[in-house]
Computed example of a mutant assay.
Amino acid sequence: NPRVTLHFTPTSCSWLNMVEIFFGIITRQCLERGTFSSVKDLEQTMQRYIENYNQDAKPFTWTKSAEYLLGKMKRKQTINTEH
């Protein structure tokens, strides 16, 4: 479709990485060895964990500079991917 332009983002540049990091934290620290008798029990456990986590939350920070990420994007660009 000529109206669609694809923009490829290297995996290390995506905000979804931060979401995945948080899911990894909640999985390891809250769910990994848990036993839940119902979905409601699971939801309550996760809600308690998140409330507790947010008491001392620290923002996730990027460890790569903008220049590094932009350079990575340029290196991974593909040439004309028309089908």
Rank of each mutant, 00 (worst) to 15 (best):
N52T: 14
T35P: 00
I26H: 00
N80R: 12
T11F: 06
F8D: 04
T5C: 10
T9Y: 03
W15Q: 10
S14C: 09
R48T: 12
T11K: 11
M73L: 12
S14M: 07
P10F: 02
F23M: 08
L16R: 09
T81S: 13
G71T: 06
I50S: 04
M46Y: 02
N17S: 11
Y68Q: 13
G34T: 03
E43C: 13
S14H: 07
F60E: 01
G34F: 04
R28D: 12
N80E: 09
I25H: 11
S12I: 11
I25R: 08
F23P: 00
C13F: 03
V19L: 13
P59G: 02
M73H: 04
G71M: 04
N17R: 07
T81F: 07
M73E: 06
R28T: 10
Q47Y: 08
C30W: 00
T81H: 09
I21R: 15
Q44G: 03
Q29L: 14
L6R: 05
L70S: 07
T81K: 08
E43Q: 15
Q55R: 14
T61E: 11
H83G: 08
W62I: 01
P10R: 01
G34H: 06
L42N: 01
R48Y: 09
Q47K: 15
T45R: 03
E67N: 10
T11Y: 04
T27W: 06
S38H: 09
E32G: 04
R33D: 12
T45S: 12
T78R: 14
N54M: 11
F60P: 00
T61D: 02
T11P: 05
T61G: 02
S38F: 07
C13K: 01
Q77E: 08
P10K: 02
D41R: 07
L69H: 01
R48F: 04
M73I: 03
E82L: 12
I26Y: 01
R28G: 03
L16N: 09
T9V: 13
D56N: 13
A66S: 13
G71H: 06
S14K: 08
M73P: 01
K64D: 07
E82N: 12
P2M: 04
Y68E: 15
Y49C: 02
W15H: 12
A66N: 13
N54H: 08
L69W: 00
R48P: 01
K74W: 05
I26F: 02
A57P: 00
K64G: 01
C30G: 02
A57T: 04
E32F: 09
P10T: 05
I25N: 06
D41G: 05
F60K: 07
K74N: 09
E20I: 01
E82C: 12
S37K: 15
E82S: 13
K72P: 01
L70R: 14
S14T: 15
W15M: 08
A66C: 10
M46V: 15
I21W: 08
F8E: 05
P10A: 06
R33N: 15
M46K: 00
E82G: 06
H83W: 07
C30K: 01
I50M: 11
Q47I: 07
